[in-house]
């Protein structure tokens, strides 16, 4: 193999038709619309750009790291023995995701989506690595961690996992906005196309930041690299997520 191979599994993972519960989440868009902060194409564009630069970038880096960890634990047989102790790394990486998500509503949404994705991925790409992740984080892995692990097991590279995570960070809210505001779906896809360079940048940042226990030369550890992953926060998304949880009328879980 000289040229990097193209991985069709990436398309399956990124497709909104992947039956993993994503359709029930708006990534804060429903709350932003309810607050009047997103009301048309320009405000949606600004929302998506900000989301991608913050939680989208963080998700991309976590997903890339999870992908690298999945690949290295599959290769080295450290996926954990089927009945015994959980394999090293997953709980630590998941805790890094939790420390970057201040809002409990967002943590819960992330864990629910991660749990649903892992359930689906384990049936599509059965692997002791995914079983190990489910055991290591019984409350449900954060979504970027589950996504990256699934990508790794499906044979994707860390950069591809990062791209899928960044893509999911903007397509979920975009679809929700089409439904909730009745925006022209073609115009909204145009906004997404405009974000393509930012998506690619997030993917390459993610791939550059990814580390697995196998790839980090001592004395550094994978955990010390994960600690330094980007942590861009979006205070407005935090406030919107908490407000959404308390809204009487809502279509989306988050």
């Amino acid at each position: 193999m000289s040229a990097p191979s193209l991985n069709a599994a990436l398309l399956l993972l990124a497709d909104s038709r992947l039956p993993a519960g994503g359709h029930g989440h708006s990534g804060g868009a429903e709350a932003a619309i309810a607050a009047g902060a997103v009301r048309d194409l320009p405000t949606l564009a600004a929302f998506l750009r900000g989301r991608l630069a913050t939680s989208g970038l963080v998700a991309a880096c976590l997903a890339a790291s999870a992908c690298a960890l999945a690949a290295s634990s599959a290769g080295s047989g450290t996926a954990g023995d089927p009945a015994g102790a959980p394999p090293g790394g997953w709980a630590e990486l998941d805790a890094e995701a939790g420390a970057r998500t201040a809002s409990p509503a967002q943590r819960e949404a992330s864990r629910v989506q991660g749990r649903l994705l892992l359930r689906t991925a384990r049936r599509i790409w059965p692997s002791p690595v995914l079983d190990g992740l489910a055991r290591a984080v019984p409350e449900g892995a954060h979504h970027p961690v589950a996504l990256g692990a699934a990508a790794g097991v499906a044979g994707c590279a860390p950069g591809e996992a990062a791209l899928a995570a960044a893509y999911a960070a903007v397509t979920g809210p975009a679809t929700a906005a089409v439904r909730l505001l009745g925006l022209d779906p073609v115009a909204v896809h145009r906004l997404l196309a405009d974000l393509a360079p930012d998506l690619e940048r997030a993917a390459s940042t993610g791939s550059g930041a990814a580390a697995s226990p196998a790839s980090v030369p001592p004395p550094r550890t994978a955990a010390s690299v994960w600690a330094e992953l980007p942590a861009h926060s979006a205070p407005a998304l935090d406030l919107l997520a908490e407000r959404h949880l308390r809204a009487g009328l809502r279509l989306f879980v988050s």
Binding site: R51, T54, A236
Partner: peptide, 25 residues
């Protein structure tokens, strides 16, 4: 164990005014 990790970037007009990040603040 990590408790909280946060980064803020200020000064990029495209991000500062995003309703997802700082909104009108």
């Amino acid at each position: 164990r990590p408790l909280l990790r946060q980064e803020f970037t200020v000064g990029d007009p495209a991000i500062d005014a995003s309703p997802a990040v700082y909104g009108d603040a």
